[in-house]
Design a protein around this nucleic acid. Structure first.
Lengths: 144, 144
DNA sequence: TTATCTGCAAAGCCTTTGCACTTAG
DNA sequence: CTAAGTGCAAAGGCTTTGCAGATAA
């Protein structure tokens, strides 16, 4: 329940940009940080409304955009066309493994793969800045 | 300019499903096959209209869906929220390298990475069925 | 005070759908 | 003949935006 670092990041971000603090932004940030899940915008909106029903959906969208810009989260676009937001601070880089049957989403990491990607990109004259690897499959619970 | 195989695939697909041939479907398929590029739906629509201006956008969307179902193409969702369609038949599996500066899209492949993905998934009890790897960076023309 | 925020409703974007008509088989 | 296809306009789903009033600094 201690999110000092994240709060400080957002705080600094707002100050640096000359933006303001507000009850809405505080509520949305708190709700977002407390939910260690890959949320969709409207799921976050729903949770936020439980805390403060008067907050509008546009404010959630606008605030989510600030979170992205501040580096607190990033947007993950899935193949079904929906976007989810995942926490970034204190989370090592990882890729995703998604069960096509139950929809479960796992975070995975393989250092070898990362390195090979670097090399592959270099071979093509690219300076890689980021990447996205999503693997779809059937998890052990659902499968076989 | 010879797309017999692709045309046969689509032909068989339609017949198997009890669907019909039509001038529109022929025109759209021909236009799609002749354009070896990752097109967006509305770009294809535009090209198709040059051949046959009376074809409606909904028909393009509906036909693109058939192409996907027949295995002729697949949808590629990029981070900017747009979808592009890429040819599948006669194209080996590959991943993508996209230049953040000029938007150029390269198809790349690395067998090692593929294998490691398999292993990584297995380690987590997943049976991988597909994956999507997109790397973003700066290409040699734009970079440094 | 005044630039930024906010909620609402409206507008945007891309894609899908309902409908009445047309057409392939 | 009749199931399937088509174009159009309308509707969807998600996200952004314009605006007038509210508020942080």
């Amino acid at each position: 329940m201690a999110f000092e670092e994240e709060e400080k990041i957002f705080d600094d971000f707002l100050r640096t940009r000359g933006l303001k603090h507000s009850e809405q932004r505080r509520d949305i940030l708190k709700t977002f940080l407390e939910t260690e899940k890959h949320l969709k915008a409207d799921e976050l909106d729903e949770l936020v409304k439980k805390v403060n029903p008067s907050i509008g959906r546009s404010t959630v969208y606008r605030t989510l955009k600030l979170f992205r810009e501040s580096g607190l989260c990033r947007e993950l676009k899935l193949d079904d066309g929906t976007s989810r937001y995942e926490h970034l601070y204190g989370h090592e880089h990882h890729d995703h493994l998604i069960c096509k049957s139950c929809g479960n989403l796992h975070e995975v990491y393989d250092h070898e793969i990362e390195k090979l990607q670097e090399n592959l990109a270099k071979k093509h004259g690219f300076n890689i800045t980021s990447h996205k690897l999503v693997m779809y499959g059937i998890c052990s619970k659902c499968g076989n």
